[in-house]
């Protein structure tokens, strides 16, 4: 498989786990024009993101094209121990998806 589009860093400290993640994605709004051809660039953005800790959902998000290119997402949840898996999955408006899992450090 190609290199994952998701980078995850999860850190547990004092019973609180902080998860930071970066996703590689163009996040096109569908409102931009290709300057050379003058044609509209079709919309291509992530619509749904789901984050899980130990297979239990901790955060889900719905995004629009108003989220910046190569989106960054950070959140915190209580609980979570070192070594627990945290997974993040996304789906975009063109039906593409990806997921990645990282262990809490």
């Amino acid at each position: 498989m190609a290199k994952s589009s998701i980078k995850i860093r999860a850190k547990a400290k004092g019973g609180v786990t902080t998860v930071k993640c970066l996703i590689n994605h163009p996040m096109e709004t569908g409102l931009r024009k290709n300057k050379k051809t003058g044609k509209m660039i079709p919309a291509h953005f992530i619509t749904d993101v789901v984050a899980k800790h130990n297979d239990a959902e901790v955060l889900s998000a719905q995004w629009s094209g108003g989220i910046s290119k190569n989106p960054y997402l950070a959140f915190k949840f209580s609980g979570g121990a070192k070594g627990d898996p945290v997974s993040i999955a996304w789906t975009d408006n063109q039906g593409k998806s990806d997921s990645a899992t990282a262990k809490i450090k």
């Binding site: 955060l59 998000a61 094209g65 989220i67 910046s68 960054y72 950070a74 959140f75 949840f77 209580s78």
Partner: peptide, 13 residues
């Protein structure tokens, strides 16, 4: 989720 804290970050346009 119920254990998730009200603290999220992102980058917007």
């Amino acid at each position: 989720g119920k254990n998730t804290m009200a603290n999220v970050s992102c980058r917007i346009k």
